[in-house]
Design a protein around this nucleic acid. Sequence first.
RNA 1: GGUCCUGUGGCCGAGUGGCUAGGCACAGCUCUGCAAAAGCUUCUACAGCGGUUCGAAUCCGCUCGGGACCUCCA
Length: 496
Amino acid sequence: MPLTIYNSLSKKKEIFEPINPPYVGMYVCGPTVSGESHLGHARPYITFDVVYRYLLYLGYKVRYVRNITDAGHFEEEGREAIDKISTKAQLERMEPMELVHKYTNLFHWAFKKFNTLVPNIEPTATGHIVEQIDMIKKLLADGYAYEVNGSVYFDVKKYAENHDYGKLSGRVIEDLLETTRDLEGQEEKRNKVDFALWKAAPPKHIMRWNSPWGEGFPGWHIECSAMATKYLGAHFDIHGGGMDLLFPHHESEIAQSTICNHIEPAKYWMHNNMITVAGKKMGKSYNNQIKLTEMFDGSHPLLTQPFSPMTIRFFILQTHYKSTLDFSSEALVASEKGLKRLLDAARFLKMLPVHTQDGVNTDKELNEKIQRLVSAFPDFINDDFNTAKVLANMFELVPIINSIKDGLIEPGSISSTTLQSLKEEMDIYLTQILGIEDELAPDVQIEQIMELLIEIRKEARDKKDFATSDKIRKKLEAMDIVLNDEKGGKTTWNEK
RNA sequence: GGUCCUGUGGCCGAGUGGCUAGGCACAGCUCUGCAAAAGCUUCUACAGCGGUUCGAAUCCGCUCGGGACCUCCA
């Protein structure tokens, strides 16, 4: 089965065929760095990280562009945006760049912990004001934009005369034109559907640039069009983002880019669904966000404990990206336990040697089962990145792996080719494609100390000195290190 | 109000016509100095009503519930 992707544009699953193989251009809407990232933000960047990883694995030469939105009307949480012309000393005033820098760093820090690969280009909106202005000029020249009082708007009604505005989001232009919603600044627009390309900055606004229309700042949608065009060309393969960006952001992006470049920007549009809390979208509107820093340290009231980045990554990948995912501390605990079991098995499998010669005891049925499960990995990931099914298959392999570990299955009953492919494919899919790393891999020195402790404890146990052996185990447990006495007298350990 | 999505067992979640999804929790058993881990087994399902079909969680209709977007939002 070839890779198929659900295309939001056609509302169908389509076979993925790059425009210019082996090159693939992928643009994903990145974070707005006016505040800290929350759990909801983890979803798209982890989802598209798997997309990126898989495309790389397939051998495509991928250029992955993810922007940083660092322009707009910004205020730091808990701190008022201060008037640029205030009399305060410069160092006391909030510098936009300072704010943006702080949250960009925090974003990078968090997503490094999530083990997401770094995009090839991470362009900032403020670094591409010139490109945005150029694009707006072009829209004006073509007659699809108009200027009012130093602001420039896109003329949606005119666009809709010969284009399908709404084709991505399913909006009907007539309905949009009749919208009765009252919003600030609407009176300047010819129609309420029109959206800003450039906004004149009021005197208090701290982010401002010179433009042919006076001092101002770019509209929200134009940055993505400008930067995607610059780095991926007029027509590229994949554009991704959260479902909440479908309208108006992506719809408007299509309109702008189509006029400027005379071609629709992206061939495949991919949208991930939301993370919900008690059934409601996590986001600004409900004020129910849990910051990533709170997730990691467990400080949010909804959390019963801290959750590691890998637990969160695993939690997200356990469901299909187009389904909503309901957050709860309980669900995260379940993921944490499941992930541990999976990683324990994967660690053992990695160390398991492959015999060079097959004996006569190979278990045909078992071999076929393993091969069936392993060979299904690509089928599932090819089916619109069904990571949930890939993981489910891995969990079906876990009892088999653990049975080898416990001596319940003779290693010889699995053929060397089956074992080899099991080892390889598990590693490829778990580590390389799903990007799940073993956070608990200990360092060498600790490993050696533990070996010593286990040896001492074994000597005590051999002498039936259980007081000593239990003391060692209990004290270690207090340090979150668990000892497991396994069959055959061997003792292993792991961190809680 | 408009457009669209959705309702699966204690919890989270796969699954688009017929085959045990999976994870966590719970219970029993095996193993064990004890414990933990692990293995095995078992138990809770497809919102309701009607229709299509040999057969539906899966298709259609209605009812009820939840949600998303239409406004900054991943």
